[in-house]
């Protein structure tokens, strides 16, 4: 038996009383993450094995280990995400509700203006706009922007300790979920004002949101790695998302295009937005829409996975 240093002796005793369920998150699967309180945490069997001599198969395995160990550290990712939000709004009286307020102002003014431009009744248009705009801004667009900084922002951590990159991905996703959560108040308020409560039907958007979580994580692996390597990519992504924003039915309804909208299915953001938006507006997305959303997502996951597998060992040199 090893003599434990006195500094952590108390800690280990403390912990031993609770070993078991509480420690299960950090069980043997976290085999690659370093540093443990030298302690009665018998669960953490740790070793580090990096073999650069073997090719693709070890790279795949290392990427899988990254995801597995990152998921085991999900508490850390969630804490980091919360603290990011807390830091961002530290010292502002409204906190993250500042976002809610600015979104509300934007939805109100755009709803009024575009209802006029498009000659639609505000009552028909505003709920659609509120849902679409919030889902785009705090959802798709927000994630695309933040995914670019996913690893760059964690530069200090990445260079000073070994931590699964997946922790940074969880952190970025959590941050965006929190922001979206605060912004959802705006469409809810619009529904309340017009008495258009979607009721239990809105729960059908949950599978869509789950899909978004996976796509958001994939975006973090993909864009995070590419943007760490090529520093001119974030502005390019910014412009692409700006174009996508206009080409996707966010401020306009697909019905306004009619037959001229044949190209809409070519835009991956259209089905992705629709699977979440439709249930909130009281309709159900067709199987075709769901199929397209899943298909585009699957391709995106595959591409992201390959990029991450290739980039993972290099990210520490890039950030």
């Amino acid at each position: 038996m090893n003599v434990l240093p006195s500094a952590s002796e108390r800690l280990s005793r403390h912990d031993r009383t609770t070993t078991g369920l509480a420690d299960e998150a950090a069980d043997t699967r976290a085999a690659l993450h370093p540093g443990a309180m030298a302690s009665g945490q018998q669960g953490i069997a740790q070793e580090l094995l990096i073999d650069a001599r073997l090719g693709r198969k070890t790279r795949d395995k290392a990427a899988i280990a990254d995801i597995r160990d990152g998921l085991a550290l999900w508490r850390l990712g969630v804490s980091l995400g919360w603290l990011d939000i807390k830091l961002r709004y530290r010292g502002s009286a409204l906190g993250p509700f500042w976002l809610t307020l600015s979104s509300a102002v934007m939805v109100a003014s755009m709803g009024w203006l575009y209802a006029m431009l498009f000659h639609i009744v505000v009552r028909d248009y505003l709920p659609f706009l509120a849902v679409s705009l919030i889902l785009w801004q705090a959802g798709i667009g927000g994630v695309a922007g933040e995914a670019c900084d996913c690893f760059i922002n964690a530069e200090r951590t990445i260079r000073s300790m070994r931590m699964p990159f997946t922790v940074q991905v969880i952190r970025t996703v959590v941050r965006n979920v929190i922001v979206l959560g605060h912004n959802v108040i705006v469409p809810l308020a619009v529904f309340a004002i017009y008495g258009l409560w979607p009721g239990a039907h809105a729960l059908l958007s949950l599978p869509g949101l789950a899909l978004w979580l996976l796509d958001g994580a994939a975006a973090c692996y993909f864009l995070g790695a590419i943007c760490a390597r090529f520093r001119d990519v974030p502005p390019i992504i910014g412009s692409l998302m700006q174009i996508a924003y206009y080409l996707t039915p966010v401020i306009w309804k697909p019905s306004q295009l009619g037959a001229r909208g044949w190209w809409l299915p070519l835009n991956p953001f259209d089905p992705l937005l629709e699977v979440v938006r439709a249930p909130l507006l009281g309709t159900t997305p067709s199987l075709l829409i769901w199929g397209a959303a899943l298909g585009y997502s699957a391709v995106f996951w595959l591409v992201s996975w390959r990029v991450f597998v290739r980039a993972r060992p290099r990210i520490a040199f890039w950030v």
Partner: peptide
């Protein structure tokens, strides 16, 4: 410590690792 991955060769470290490298101890100053 597993922070930089080598371009060639193999490293194998058995046991829990703690690295005391960074002058900020890996803390977030904010």
């Amino acid at each position: 410590g597993g922070i930089y991955e080598p371009v060639a060769g193999r490293i194998h470290v058995g046991g829990t690792i703690n690295t005391l490298l960074d002058t900020n101890f890996g803390m977030n100053l904010d």
